[in-house]
């Protein structure tokens, strides 16, 4: 019951932290989409590059988030951004790149070669083919990658509280420091709820953006 009492008393803080959490995740995703999708498309044209890029993204995924923050600290400290939102967002972007790049790459690669052949044979340019056929067909898989990335970095963003990035991790971190059980639980509950809601929302987006012809 303490949990609800805590949330009732601190609901404005909780809302603020949730908002902070959300925009960190949202901004990171936006940056990751803007870079990851073009990279994913680009590497479909070059097998060597594809292996290297997906390989590096895989390596980044294996670094524990806490360690990544630690690794970035001395580097970013040079620019006066060792702590705070900047390292958090950089880490979140890096973590979301892999699912986004990989899914984009696989989705474009998996477009039926017959379709590409027909398009080329009709006189479509590479760009037209990409815009009118390959990307629309890849959209569901790309969004699925986005969904994975979003849910994952909502969790990672909670850890970013340790580098002073704010967000719902603050409840967890301070709760642990103060042995304030309800506070830890409140943070955990909010993060989990956020992840579930975002996941559902993304699922909806996925359905909505899938071209009708392949939904049938």
């Amino acid at each position: 019951m303490n949990l609800f009492v805590f949330l009732q008393e601190n609901y404005s803080t909780a809302l603020l932290l949730t908002w902070e959490h959300l925009w960190m995740v949202g901004l990171s995703l936006l940056i990751a989409i803007c870079t990851g999708v073009p990279i994913g498309i680009l590497i479909t044209k070059n097998k060597n590059l594809a292996q290297k890029i997906i390989g590096s993204a895989n390596v980044i995924m294996t670094i524990p988030s806490i360690a990544l923050f630690g690794l970035m600290l001395p580097v970013l400290a040079v620019f006066g951004h060792g702590l705070g939102k900047v390292p958090a967002i950089i880490a979140l972007v890096l973590y979301s790149e892999l699912p986004i790049i990989r899914n984009t790459f696989i989705a474009i690669k998996n477009v039926d070669p017959a379709m590409v052949d027909a398009g080329k044979g009709m006189g479509m340019t590479k760009w037209q083919l990409l815009r009118e056929v390959e990307i629309p067909l890849a959209v569901p898989v790309i969004i699925a990658g986005l969904r994975t990335a979003a849910v994952m970095i909502i969790g990672i963003a909670a850890i970013a509280a340790y580098v002073g990035a704010g967000g719902l991790g603050v409840f967890i971190q301070q709760g642990i420091a103060r042995s304030h059980e309800s506070m830890v639980l409140a943070g955990a509950l909010c993060v989990s709820l956020l992840a579930v809601i975002v996941d559902l929302g993304m699922g909806f987006l996925e359905r909505w953006l899938t071209p009708r012809g392949i939904r049938l």
Partner: peptide, 14 residues
């Protein structure tokens, strides 16, 4: 005009 065995209609288009 180009017609192929696999038909190659674009499923995202009507």
């Amino acid at each position: 005009g180009y017609v192929i065995q696999q038909i190659g209609l674009f499923p995202n288009k009507t």
